[in-house]
Amino acid sequence: MSQSKGVSPPKNPPLELNREMVRGEFGLRVDELSGQKLYDCYQCGNCSSGCPLAQEMDILPSAMIRFAQLGQKDILLNSGTIWICASCFQCTVRCPKGIDIEAVMDTLRQLALEAGVDHFGPDEISPELAAEVPQPGLVGVYRKLST
């Protein structure tokens, strides 16, 4: 029992930050596409605490915003979070700074899909499901998760 202190080791290696990343090209592109100001976020965590899917996410919504402020394109576009977000706008209506967090998530999905690879393609749905899911579910999933 060598770990007497209740401090867990960091999950991720420390970020290598530089001037090009912070307020850099990537963050500005997210700002522009989403119509939001990422630097308005002061990390209160309201979005993460209200998110019904937070426990399914590898990076919490508030951390996504922080990574976006810091220009961490690779971390964001390779996250599972953008694909498990159900676009329910709970975060958006609860943000005390008025940031439309769902718009940021949608922008990150769009940027990830610009690589041309579907996250969930038309051949991945079972025929049974395709035959019974109401159309908004089908149109929604392919608009959000495929190119």
Binding site: P52, S87, C88, V141, L145
Partner: peptide, 19 residues
């Protein structure tokens, strides 16, 4: 007012089941 999983029932059905 909590989301039922919306279109995740297609892409992540287990998550929708939990919700």
């Amino acid at each position: 007012t909590e989301c039922c999983g919306s279109y995740l029932s297609v892409s992540s059905p287990d998550a929708s089941t939990r919700l």
